[in-house]
């Protein structure tokens, strides 16, 4: 038995969102008389943390505690239109729409507070703890609850706002074929080290070192979780899972979660991550999106590492032990 260590590297420029006739998302924000805000989105949180991040963005913009904001997602009856949760666009597109909507609602709340305190709205600031006070005179203060209540019961104002963020469609230049597809890119560099057993084709002892440039980590723990979990899924796509293992033959499809192969908790890769923050000029508080980019780089990096380890190029996914072994036998035969 011989085991061979190999290293593969990869670098990624990842476009945030897409450009197919424009890329809009919308958000609606309103407050109840208690000063508790609801953000209504038709956007979907599919586990990546959209609810958490849009909640933070709304609270930060409104100037209220995170606990005063509830985000209602995934209902196209109550939420305004969103293109969807794909193309790593959620934080960037939906986050910007939430900022726009929350700004409108904040303006109504501050206007009511200004009338209560008998000052100009531009002289007011929020402390993020549920209070609105006069700049430089924190004792002249009203709670966001009282402001929201006054707006609705005394002044007949709706503490609400709607927002849309649109990346307009970019036409193709007929002369050059050039188009401005997106406004914002995230970046990644990754190194994968692994061991290949040249008798079985098995990959083991995977170690991943990566650096992700994601604008700003709006929620660092969520970000880390998404990068670790996403890279794990990338490893699964690279070396394990497929619905068509014998493609194009339809025979031998998986029939349960043992035959649909996924790495188990004993197949974990050690993964060290560096997060670099270069705030995006048009991102919500500088945020981009790590979504798909956390999984994608693992695939070419694994292919490159296998080539480095045993000299065979596998160009079909997943890179199974069987494919590696067949390639090794061909290489030896040649």
């Amino acid at each position: 038995m011989a085991k061979h260590r190999g290293r593969g590297t990869v670098a990624v420029n990842y476009p945030i969102g897409m450009n197919l006739g424009g890329d809009p998302s919308q958000a609606l924000v309103h407050s109840n008389p208690e000063g508790q805000f609801t953000v209504a989105l038709s956007s979907i949180d599919l586990g990546q943390g959209m609810k958490s991040v849009t909640r933070q963005i709304a609270a930060e913009t409104l100037g209220v505690p995170v606990g005063h904001v509830y985000v209602d997602t995934a209902d196209s009856d109550t939420g305004a239109q969103c293109m969807g949760s794909f193309a790593s666009r959620g934080t960037h597109r939906v986050g910007n729409a939430v900022i726009a909507a929350a700004k409108e609602a904040r303006a109504v709340m501050l206007a009511a507070a200004a009338r209560e305190l008998e000052v100009n709205p531009t002289d007011l600031e929020t402390d993020g703890l549920g209070n609105i006070h006069v700049k430089g005179a924190p004792q002249r203060s009203v709670t966001t609850k009282d402001a929201a209540n006054a707006a609705q019961f005394k002044y007949g104002e709706s503490v609400s706002g709607s927002g849309i963020f649109l990346i307009p469609m970019s036409d193709v230049d007929v002369e050059t074929g050039e188009m401005n597809t997106v406004s914002c890119f995230a970046h990644c560099a990754m190194i994968v080290d692994l061991t290949v057993d040249d008798k079985t084709g098995e990959i083991s002892d995977v170690q991943i070192n990566s650096a992700y440039e994601i604008g700003r980590a709006l929620n660092p723990k969520l970000m880390e979780q998404q990068l670790v979990g996403g890279a794990w899924m990338g490893l699964s796509h690279a070396a394990y899972e497929t619905t068509e293992p014998a493609y194009p033959s339809r025979d031998h499809r998986p029939f349960d979660f043992s035959s649909y192969v996924m790495p188990g908790p004993g197949d974990l890769a050690q993964h060290d991550i560096a997060i670099l923050e270069r705030p995006a000029p048009d991102g919500p508080f500088g945020g981009k999106g790590p979504g798909e980019m956390c999984a994608n780089p693992v695939l070419p990096a694994v292919a490159n590492a296998v080539f480095d380890a045993v000299g065979v190029e596998i160009d079909t996914l997943p890179i199974t032990p069987e494919r590696i072994l067949r390639a090794l036998k061909e290489q030896r035969g040649a």
Partner: peptide
């Protein structure tokens, strides 16, 4: 026993 995934697999 040889499996693809670890520690459990068919």
């Amino acid at each position: 026993k040889m499996t693809r995934s670890h520690p459990r697999g068919a």
